[in-house]
Amino acid sequence: MELLLAVLVGALVAAGAYLMMSGRTLPYLFGLTMISNAANLAIFATGRLTFGKPPLVPGDAETLAGAANPLPQALILTAIVIGFGLLVFALALALKSYRGLGTDDIDAAAAEERT
């Protein structure tokens, strides 16, 4: 299971990095989203991956032995919320920038300024 997740994280980072190097705003933001989700999955794996355990501590035990650690999941939850907010803002910015410049080329404004 960890191996599967590791391969998935690697694939997401690779695809994200490829998209981010396109030099255009929208693919850049999609690539960034992929990488931030890859980061979330990597953190998810650090808290152990377990199947089918009820989230109940047996009456005579102090802790739930062998269960996943919920704290990394809480971290991811926070990261997802923050990441979602930032992505929405960045998408709105990209749209406004596209409407203003008429292109989604990241270096268009700088090239215009030089000429």
Binding site: S36, I43, T46, P72, A79, I82, L86, A90
Partner: peptide, 16 residues
């Protein structure tokens, strides 16, 4: 935003 992703990944690995 790239720096942000690196930050959260580093924190997650450190906790792990």
């Amino acid at each position: 935003l790239i720096g942000t992703v690196a930050f959260i990944t580093g924190v997650g690995l450190l906790y792990g």
